[in-house]
Amino acid sequence: MADESTGAFASYAPFLGTYTPRLDDKGRLILPAKFRAQLASGLVVTRGQERCLFVFPMSEFQRMHEQIRQAPVTSKQARDYLRVFLSGAHDEIPDKQGRLAIPSALRAYAGLDRDVAVIGAGTRVEIWDAAAWEAYLAEQVESYSDTAEEVFPGAF
């Protein structure tokens, strides 16, 4: 969200870090304090890849939706993606304590029970089952240094 007149970043701060809160008995998650301001006015939680949940600030979700809807309706792959992505989407405003109620269908999709990992992923937050996150991270760390130049040419 760059300010076009200066090229500087406006009020956007990327979501960063890993946090390990617990879900309460009602399936609510207390959002990390660092994330609350950006999510306080509204968010969308939906299915992510690798069986995690994606949490977008409403403005980012609207930007993504606009891009997605540009895909041709004649593309089966685009229709399939849109159906899975949007059918699981749930919009919400966190309560005064910064809690997010995660619908049971989304908890089931991501295998969330009690212990979760909440990670900052730049423009979104991801919610993982804690054990699934640790397994995924351990697997990815092996190839992390090998892929930097391939994924981000010239950045390092």
Rank of each mutant, 00 (worst) to 15 (best):
P103W: 04
P57V: 13
D80R: 14
L106Q: 03
S75R: 11
L43A: 13
E60I: 13
G42N: 07
M58V: 10
A89T: 05
M58D: 03
A78G: 07
G42K: 12
I30L: 12
L29R: 14
A8D: 04
I30R: 14
A37H: 12
R22P: 00
A71C: 09
F15K: 07
L39V: 12
H65N: 11
G88Y: 03
Q67G: 14
L29I: 13
L106K: 09
P32M: 10
F85D: 01
P14G: 11
V44S: 09
P103V: 02
R36H: 06
P103N: 07
G7D: 00
Q49Y: 08
R83S: 05
A78I: 08
S41Q: 10
L43I: 02
A33V: 15
Q62Y: 02
S59C: 03
S87H: 07
S5M: 12
H65F: 02
K34M: 00
T46V: 07
L86V: 12
V73L: 15
L100R: 07
P14T: 13
R63P: 04
A10K: 12
Q67Y: 04
T6H: 02
L43M: 12
K26R: 15
P103R: 08
S87A: 14
D80I: 03
R22E: 00
L43N: 08
S104L: 05
H65R: 14
L106N: 07
R47L: 01
A13K: 13
K76R: 15
G7K: 14
L86W: 06
L16D: 01
Q38F: 02
P32I: 09
Q62P: 00
K26V: 06
G17A: 09
A101K: 11
I68S: 05
C52N: 11
A10V: 05
P72Y: 04
H90N: 13
F54T: 06
A40E: 02
D25W: 05
V73E: 08
Y12L: 14
I102N: 08
R22G: 01
G42S: 06
L29Q: 10
P57N: 08
R107G: 02
L31I: 14
S87P: 01
R79E: 01
R36M: 04
F54Y: 15
L82V: 08
Q62A: 14
F61D: 02
R63W: 03
D24A: 11
T74V: 10
R79M: 04
Y81E: 00
L16H: 04
E4K: 15
R99V: 06
H90Y: 12
I102F: 03
D25S: 14
L31W: 07
H90R: 10
S59Q: 10
D80S: 11
D25E: 14
L53P: 01
L82M: 10
R107T: 03
Q67T: 13
T18S: 14
Q97D: 05
V44F: 06
D80L: 07
H65W: 00
T46N: 08
L100S: 03
L43F: 02
Q67C: 06
R107F: 02
I68C: 01
V44C: 09
V84W: 05
H65K: 11
R51L: 11
I68Q: 03
L29N: 10
L86G: 00
R79Q: 06
R47Y: 03
V55A: 08
L43Q: 07
A40H: 05
